[in-house]
Design a protein around this nucleic acid. Structure first.
Length: 996
RNA sequence: GCCCAGGUGGUGAAACCGGUAGACACGCAGGACUUAAAAUCCUGUGACCGAUGAGGUCGUGCGGGUUCAAGUCCCGCCCUGGGUACCA
């Protein structure tokens, strides 16, 4: 056998590994543990393309490497199986999403198995499996039955059981309670609590639960009949499908992730994640520190009232209440010349002067009508309307007008700002536009030109703050405001509570029923609450979610919640389940989660930066607070693999110039240039008005009329396989087509005498690197690669392509290099076609090649530099081949080092050596620096920093000795000539530089 | 606009602490073996000058700087990709 028959060998070893169960996670509690996890894939119907396994291959190398280094390795794979595509398919075809999902999982699993990953499949989990989502529902109920105590843990805060909150209410009401809740949460005494009805108590508790029901502004997508999360909406349309989205108020289940804002932000510092992802999360959470300041509105002269007494009283009380604003620059308080409320601010109408009511109403209505998209498009246009009322600056009693404007967002801070046009760019534009006064409060402000927000500048016109910088002034103002009771220092977060309800079928049912006194949790012993059968996967006629179609959707005669959980519910805790996947008593036992702890290496795409990665951290911290696990961050080290892009092949289509009526109608002559600019002429049938042009060809008078991609499998080095293309196109396109290539033309129905045969036409497509997708026809399927080159080649080539974190295009041609390397190694062990290794003692040179490799691989793996590892293997094998080495003493460790990268071929060679056990159970070989040490080093000799030649000098020589040796060398004399070096820089072990 | 990556041959890339730029591979060109092809092996391959030699000049997005020495450090800009946006 002179050739490595990969197909046969790979199948054989995959069966062998499975039979021996060598990737099963070891139970031995004495072994050090290593948990490597790939991000949960959604099993889409399209299957895998070559981009998907990139991260899986890298993590598999790490898993195998650690296994060989004596770690107990947990390396599982499972499926995030609930989701919209299966549901959409169900809506279209009536096929139950569970069936589609099962088919897709089967397909994915088969594809993954062929690549030879070392997953412990016995631990696989699927989120749509009731035995799994039972625990997703259970965690939801834990959230429902928890509140967040901000005072716990020395002010860090901690989630606590809801019954402890009830006890607090019974003893002290809301007195001395610092809980995460909305700002407008009512205050009550213990006595009031005791008098509340059950329904009222339930309503009060809802303000504190970590999973709670609230009226929320949501992104309603009519086309999908569902609500989308903010990160599922891009540019005003749904991320999936691109359907329009509108803003609506709806009753939703929410998760109080904002309780964890500070911890989620601060926790980032200790994580071994890329700065890019950490920055994205920081920005998403968006902490800003500043102050809330209350401005008292001027009393309204009430001489015009026509209200009834009752409404008059309620109105005037809100009229009198101070207006609260949030600012990060309380130091600029003396520069305030107006207040602005968001149009959605609840007190807009109450604070509007009756004479202005009409105008304000119109403005509010107008902003409501404008879509998100429009508002985004007109970011720089200034609009707003005065309320006709004024407020008073709490520090200097200045009278300032109150405005309404849409540049203030209801959803951030308190929905109201103080306008400081001297120090804020937006306030400045607003003041400029409406001719409001601009009071400079920091030195160097030019009110004519713009705002000055420098924090280091000295304050002016600011009473007791004058002469201070912003950082000095801020605590002073806050102190004064707190003394006067007009405000206090505070911290705001951009992060919003997460909407948890989905108006969809294919998700986990929310285990809540609605009783007479409010929501009731399904008893945990009744979980899982199974997803019911429905006749259609669509919303009901009344716009209720699909679950409302289910027969008898109730719990102890109480109607059940009809929304389901979002995709991220199941994926927020799955890494815990893998430690104990078959547990029927708990989501995972502490014994197992304590043993494996955090994921040591989490591999996946950067697109989950603010979604999955944030929610998973939130759930982990919550489960930690409630004592269910012993750590509060899920993923210690995160590596984001880059994308593998596709190279699409495009053909240019042109409209040919018109033919004059008197011309010969059989053929026509086209003139133009080829891609090198050489003039060309073609004689073509005149019946065609359109043509495809080979890349770079120009035709006089022709107009481009679009381009079309062709399947990449028909293209090699940009040259189109015209025969194949013709075979595919002729069936579809009855109109016929004309192709103009480098050397002639081709049509669908060979009708012209001078037409080339499809094999002869040289036709180039234009390559373009873009995302790999079906629609761009640039998808390369791993099954195809495995079939043609084998799994080991695919694995090594994906690693060889470039650094793991970087995006790079797939080039099928390049794969030959890796394929040849593996074949070369195989032949090295099969001299004359038979397996045979030399039992002799290797030479120093042979040892050196081996240990150079081992040292390199060891350090490369530690820093995920797998592309250079593959090169190192190639270099070693090239060197050994040149030396004619096929000694077992060298090949044995080399094969073990190769095992994580090319598990099949190394197993073939290993077992051919007569080893009793799998190579994957052997020890990873260590490099020995002694074996690569050399006595001499080729010193580069530089002239003024420019490399001239090398001198072979003893490595042990000191700088002085080296200088003496160099200066005595005849080649150096020749280089110097008459000149004498001004200075000789000698860096032992590196370089010698002669400076003239 | 702001934040984060990145920009090196025809292509993917390497250079890990400031020390020989382009390792390894693809592609291309030439050669050996073969009736031929495939496979394999050998040689060359950044650009320019020079004779195809010896040798030299230039060269890591652009312009400056620090240094004996810069792809690497500093300052200013340009471009590409990702994120984000009246966030007070």
């Amino acid at each position: 056998m002179s050739e490595y028959l990969f197909a046969q060998e790979e199948q054989r070893w995959q069966a062998y590994w499975e039979e021996k169960g060598i990737y099963r996670t070891p139970d031995d509690p004495n072994l050090p543990t290593y948990y490597v996890l790939d991000m949960f894939p959604y099993p889409s119907g399209a299957g895998l393309h070559v981009g998907h396994p990139l991260g899986y291959i890298a993590s598999d190398i790490m898993a195998r490497y650690h296994r060989m280094r004596g770690y107990a390795v947990l390396h599982p794979m499972g499926f995030d199986a609930f989701g919209l595509p299966a549901e959409q398919y169900a809506i279209q075809t009536g096929q139950h999403p569970a069936h589609t999902t099962a088919d897709n999982i089967k397909k994915y699993t088969e594809q993954l198995r062929k690549i030879g990953f070392s997953y412990d499949w016995s631990r696989s989990v699927t989120t749509s499996d009731p035995s799994y989502y039972r625990w997703t529902q259970w965690i939801f109920l834990e959230l429902f039955n928890s509140w967040y105590d901000r005072d716990a843990h020395n002010g860090v805060g901690r989630a606590r059981p809801i019954h402890e909150l009830i006890r607090h209410f019974e003893m002290r009401g809301t007195y001395e309670l610092h809980a995460a809740c909305a700002d407008d949460t009512p205050v009550f005494t213990a006595d009031e609590w005791k008098l509340y009805t059950e329904a009222e108590r339930s309503e009060q508790l809802m303000h504190y639960r970590l999973a709670y029901l609230a009226e929320a502004q949501v992104n309603w997508c009519p086309a999908l009949g569902t609500v989308l999360a903010n990160d599922e909406v891009k540019d005003g349309v749904s991320e999936r499908g691109g359907h329009p989205v509108e803003v609506r108020m709806m009753q939703q289940w929410m998760l109080r992730i904002t309780a964890y804002s500070a911890r989620l932000l601060d926790g980032l510092n200790d994580l071994n994640w890329s700065d890019a992802i950490k920055e994205q999360q920081r920005h998403w959470i968006g902490r800003s520190t500043g102050a809330r300041i209350r401005f008292k509105p001027e009393t309204l002269e009430t001489h015009h009232q026509t209200h009834t007494l009752e409404t008059h009283i309620t109105l005037s009380s809100t009229e009198e209440e101070p207006i609260e604003v949030f600012t990060t620059r309380p130091d600029t308080l003396f520069g305030v010349s107006f207040l602005v409320l968001a149009p959605e601010h609840p007190r807009v109408m109450a604070l509007t002067h009756p004479t202005r009511r009409r105008e304000v109403e119109r403005y509010v209505l107008q902003t409501q009508l404008r879509s998100e998209r429009e508002r985004m498009a007109e970011v720089k246009t200034v609009s707003g309307v005065p309320t006709g009322r004024h407020a008073v600056n709490p520090l200097n009693s200045a009278r300032i007008p109150i405005w309404i404007a849409d540049y203030v967002l209801a959803g951030y801070g308190v929905g109201a700002v103080m306008g400081v046009p001297g120090s804020d760019e937006r306030d400045w534009r607003f003041a400029q536009h409406f001719k409001l006064p601009i009071i400079p409060v920091v030195e160097g402000t030019n009110p004519e030109k713009g705002a000055e927000s420098q924090r280091s500048a000295r304050m002016i016109n600011s009473d007791f703050l004058d002469g201070h910088t912003a950082d000095e002034a801020i605590p002073l103002v806050i102190e004064r405001l707190e003394q006067l009771g007009h405000g206090e220092g505070t911290t705001q977060y951009r992060l919003r509570d997460a909407i948890f309800s989905r108006q969809r079928y294919w998700g986990e049912p929310v285990p809540i029923a609605f009783g007479d006194h409010g929501p009731v949790a399904v008893d945990t012993s009744d979980l899982p609450l199974l997803l019911p059968e429905v006749d259609k996967y669509l919303p009901t006629e009344e716009g209720e979610p699909p679950l409302a179609r289910a027969k008898d959707w109730s719990y102890h005669r109480m109607p059940l919640e009809t929304t389901t959980m979002p995709g991220w519910a199941g994926s927020s805790w799955y890494f815990l389940r893998y430690t104990d996947p078959h547990n029927t008593k708990e989501f995972a036992s502490r014994i197992h989660t304590d043993r494996w702890k955090q994921v040591d290496l989490y591999m996946g795409g950067a697109e989950h930066a603010t979604g999955h990665l944030l929610y998973a951290r939130f759930w982990t911290q919550f489960l930690y607070d409630r004592g269910h696990i012993g750590f509060n961050e899920p993923f210690r080290c995160l590596v984001n693999q880059g994308m593998i892009q596709g190279v699409s092949a495009y053909m240019q289509r042109v409209r040919l110039p018109g033919i004059k009526p008197d011309e010969n109608h059989q053929t026509r002559v086209l003139k133009g240039f080829n891609k090198n600019g050489a003039p060309l002429r073609w004689e073509c049938p005149s019946t065609y008005t359109n043509a495809w042009l080979s890349a770079g060809i120009q035709i006089e008078g022709a107009e481009p009329s679009g381009r079309v991609s062709v399947d990449v499998s028909l293209v090699e080095q940009n040259r189109l396989n015209c025969t194949e293309w013709k075979a595919q196109e002729t069936g579809r396109d009855t109109q016929g087509w004309l192709m103009i290539g480098e050397n002639g033309h081709l049509t669908a129905q060979s009708q012209s005498h001078n037409e080339l045969h499809s094999d002869e036409l040289i036709f180039y497509t234009s390559p373009e690197v873009e995302k790999m997708s079906k629609s761009k026809r640039n998808v390369v399927n791993p099954d195809w690669v495995v079939k043609k080159y084998g799994a080991d080649t695919l694995r090594m080539y994906e690693m060889f392509l470039g650094p793991l974190e970087v995006s790079k295009p797939w080039d099928t041609q390049g794969i030959e290099g890796v394929f040849r390397f593996l074949q070369k190694l195989w032949r090295m062990c099969h001299p004359g076609g038979q397996f045979s290794l030399d039992q002799g003692e290797p030479t120093d040179q042979e040892w050196k090649s081996l240990h150079k490799l081992l040292l390199k691989i060891g350090s490369d793996i530690e820093r995920f530099s797998f592309n250079t590892s593959v090169s190192a293997f190639m270099i070693a094998v090239n060197e050994l081949q040149t030396m004619g080495c096929h000694k077992q003493a060298i090949i044995d460790p080399l094969v073990r080092a190769l095992a994580p990268f090319a598990p099949h071929l190394s197993e073939s060679l290993w077992q051919a050596m007569g080893k009793p056990e799998s190579v994957h159970l052997s020890a990873f070989p260590e490099g020995d620096p002694e074996r690569v040490r050399e006595d001499n080093y080729d010193y580069p000799i530089q002239e003024n920093g420019k490399m001239r030649f090398n001198l072979n000098l003893p490595r042990a020589a000191s700088a002085e000795e080296l200088q003496a040796l160099v200066m005595a060398n005849p080649r150096v004399h020749q280089l110097c000539g008459e000149r004498k070096p001004k200075r000789v820089v000698v860096v032992p072990g590196r370089i010698v530089n002669l400076v003239f």
